[in-house]
């Protein structure tokens, strides 16, 4: 990597999409891994906020709790759990690649479909089990 900003502003990775770079299922998933990674970071900071409010005692927690149980809080929670299950599944896919397994195009495309499916199944299962139990 060059340490200086290039004088000639050539197009870089994210701006290649669409204009110069053919749409591919696998690159969409790769992109989603980064997006969910950032989203999960925001979510992890919210988890810390939740715990900190809990540590502040019932009075302080009363200012936070209603937002979690409100409809928008529940939607956010559902999306966060799905993002985590997707990132987890795709992360395991990464770990297999790292040991040299499943890197050919056919397998990479198929494992991509599997990861999306597994993420949906795990997320729905978590919420369904919670409701039934």
């Amino acid at each position: 990597m060059s340490s200086k900003t290039p004088a000639d502003p050539r197009p870089l990775s994210p701006f290649m999409l669409g204009q110069y770079y053919r749409f591919q299922w696998t690159s969409l998933l790769s992109f989603a891994h980064r997006i969910t990674g950032i989203g999960l970071t925001a979510g992890a900071l919210l988890v810390v906020g939740w715990l900190t409010a809990m540590a502040g005692g019932p009075k302080i927690y009363a200012m936070v709790g209603p937002h979690i149980t409100a409809w928008y809080g529940q939607i956010l929670l559902f999306c966060w759990t799905w993002a985590l299950m997707y990132h987890l599944g795709n992360g395991v896919r990464h770990l297999f690649w790292d040991v040299g397994m499943g890197f050919d195009l056919k397998t990479a495309e198929r494992s991509g479909y599997a990861v999306v499916l597994v993420s949906l199944v795990l997320t729905v299962a978590a919420w369904a089990v919670a409701r039934l139990a």
């Binding site: 809990m54 992360g91 089990v129 919670a130």
Partner: peptide, 22 residues
């Protein structure tokens, strides 16, 4: 994070759909 995240997601779903009192 594989086992820890699975545990956390299932726990959070259970907490959110149960008693959410302090």
């Amino acid at each position: 994070l594989v086992p820890l995240s699975l545990w956390f997601v299932f726990s959070i779903a259970k907490l959110a759909t149960g008693n959410t009192s302090y």
